[in-house]
Design a protein around this nucleic acid. Structure first.
Lengths: 196, 196
DNA sequence: TTACAAAACTAACGCTTATTAGTTTTATTG
DNA sequence: CAATAAAACTAATAAGCGTTAGTTTTGTAA
């Protein structure tokens, strides 16, 4: 009869959510079982239900937490940064850092949101749409005042968001590239291009 | 007692694989059931086993087909293109086109490879690693002869591959952006940057 | 020490899963 | 028309799933 140790997390529920994120990342949401999750925590599956409501609640908690972190940060950047370019820079840096410090949860939100139930699924997709839209506006504004060259703003946004999303692949290889090089070179690439 | 119609596919097995790709894309591999797949084809689940060996064989077929298409194309580009820059251009164009014409299969390969069984899982990961490595070498070569500016070649490769991988999001919005604009602007962005 | 609440346990429920076996229908060929 | 092969069917299997009910243990505070 082992007990769930909150560990770094504040509550036992948070400890379960954190372990769930790790499990869902490795096995995917549908393939992961509550019995496996319980084993990671050293208890029986049914014991989890003293702390959580359901499996899908775990996914909701993970995705919701990630959404909040992106929302808070984008708001911060919109208020504090000056030029459009510096805002784009700050966004890229944030994506790299959240990938470093909250990898499991961000990965699960990016890959498993499909299995959210309503209304959480709609909420999640609406947030993503609005996040993308804000970036498009940012880039359009940068084009309007001659900071940026004229290309399709949706394509530019897609390129930037996809590039930072792809940082999940960097996570396995990070020993070869420092965080500073990654941030600076990716910003350099996306802003000034690869051509000499 | 409906029959499986090969439709555009050559054989009935290929028809099943194509429908499986669509189903796995929408529901994910683990959440998709053979009963659902059978329903899409208008037969009972057990009837599928007259044509295929197992569920996981379907995933293998999808991933294997995608790997082959990328392998063949990269080989073609390496032989026929001249400068490193034109090779990179050709690779980006190919990724955009395969996303347009083989979306379901590429999507499934990108998202569900995790559920491949050995040795197919190792084969898939090895291919991806070697594909990435070839791009790194391409970029290093471009830097060596002053075509490209000096940034970390792994970061540049990650940025490019992630950007084209992110084209899965374009698939839902493609009505607003033509294929030509997408190809040209993404190449423009990745090669010459966003800055004016 | 007693009382109470938190959180673990065991056992089971009803359901879904991929897959197999055995049978029947359909289509093709001699 | 008869024979054969392809491909459908029905029915059942064993395993695993999330979750619940009821019970027992554990830790805390009066």
């Amino acid at each position: 009869m082992a007990k769930i140790q909150p560990g770094n997390s504040a509550t036992k529920k948070e400890a379960i959510i954190q372990k769930a994120a790790t499990l869902f990342k490795v096995k995917s949401y549908t393939a992961a079982s509550m019995r496996e999750l319980a084993e990671m925590l050293g208890v029986e599956a049914s014991s989890l239900y003293n702390h959580i409501g359901s499996k899908s609640e775990l996914l909701q908690a993970i995705c919701c937490k990630v959404v909040k972190e992106f929302a808070v940060n984008l708001n911060l950047i919109e208020c504090n940064s000056t030029s459009n370019i510096s805002k784009i820079e700050a966004i890229i840096r944030f994506h790299i850092r959240i990938m470093l410090y909250n990898f499991d949860e961000v990965y699960v939100a990016n890959h498993e949101w499909k299995h959210l139930k309503e209304p959480y699924l709609s909420d999640f997709l609406n947030f993503r749409r609005s996040y993308e839209k804000k970036l498009i506006v940012l880039i359009e504004s940068g084009m309007a005042n001659n900071e940026l060259k004229i290309i399709n703003p949706y394509v530019a946004t897609l390129t930037i968001l996809s590039a930072v999303r792809g940082l999940e692949f960097w996570h396995g290889h990070k020993k070869n590239v420092s965080q500073e090089v990654l941030e600076n070179d990716m910003i350099n690439h996306l802003l000034t291009g690869l051509l000499r």
